[in-house]
Computed example of a mutant assay.
Amino acid sequence: MREPLGSTPVTPSPSAPSAHSSRTAAAYDAVAVRYAELARDALDALPLDRAILAAFAEHTGSAGPVAELGCGPGHMTAHLRDLGLDAFGVDLSPAMIRIARESYPDLRFEVGSIEALDLPDGTLDGGVSWYSAIHAAPGEVPAYLAEFRRVLAPGAPLLLAFFESEGGPVAEFDHKAAPAYRWPIDTLAALAADAGFTETGRMLREPLADERFRRGHLLLRAALP
């Protein structure tokens, strides 16, 4: 594992999730089995999504740990493993983590909040947030990005996947699990820059026949000291 230059890793004390996060976790607990069934093979029909995940894997350039930050039932963590990464998953929903552990017993999955990760500073060689921060209110997103930056080693990549607002402002919508938000890709990229990331690349994917919204992807790198 790499450490930030000139600093000592600190393991934060785990904090209780916010009331909003607790409600989101309960919402996903309630739909966990059905969600896992729908998500298990979703990547098979998404070549562009697989391409940017492959690009992320190449950008890690290390054998160190990579976390899926908000892993749900674990299918994406398993895909990262299949790309050759030392991947593990963290999710706020205990029901999702139970399914992930049952489905992929060879991988590590932990219950935890991506608002306050129980990880030392700078110990991840990569992070993937695959639609995991979409339920955070706009004012909370900078703190999420700052937390992702804290746990990533300098130079480590971060991949954000989200629903894009197609030229409009940040907009709330009726996600099936809990209220969620669509973001302009430039606005989210600017917040990531403020949190200490540099942009490596981006991808916008138009919705498929069974999808409502354009999908946004930002490939970022934690700034060097």
Rank of each mutant, 00 (worst) to 15 (best):
R2K: 09
E3A: 07
T8M: 15
V10K: 10
T11W: 08
P12V: 11
S13D: 13
S18Q: 14
S21W: 07
A25Q: 05
A26P: 08
V31C: 13
A32Y: 04
R34H: 14
L38G: 07
L43C: 02
D44I: 07
D49H: 14
R50P: 09
L53Q: 06
L53F: 03
A55D: 15
F56N: 12
A57Q: 03
E58I: 07
E58G: 12
G61S: 00
G64F: 01
G64K: 04
V66T: 01
V66S: 07
V66N: 07
M76Q: 15
D82F: 05
G84N: 12
F88N: 05
G89L: 00
V90S: 05
D91T: 00
M96E: 08
M96A: 06
R98D: 15
R101C: 02
E102Y: 03
E102F: 01
P105M: 03
S113C: 08
S113K: 02
E115K: 06
L119A: 12
P120W: 11
T123V: 13
G127H: 02
S129F: 08
I134H: 00
H135K: 03
A136D: 13
A137S: 11
V141C: 10
L145R: 12
E147G: 07
F148N: 01
R150S: 11
L152V: 14
A156I: 04
L159E: 07
E164S: 13
G167D: 12
G167R: 09
G168H: 06
G168D: 15
V170A: 11
E172L: 06
D174T: 00
K176W: 12
A180I: 00
Y181L: 03
R182G: 11
I185D: 09
T187H: 08
A189W: 06
A190Y: 01
A192Y: 11
A193R: 15
G196D: 03
T198L: 10
E199K: 08
E199W: 02
T200P: 04
M203H: 13
L204Q: 06
L204P: 01
F213Q: 02
R214K: 10
R215I: 08
G216C: 06
H217F: 15
L218S: 10
R221G: 06
A222D: 06
P225W: 04
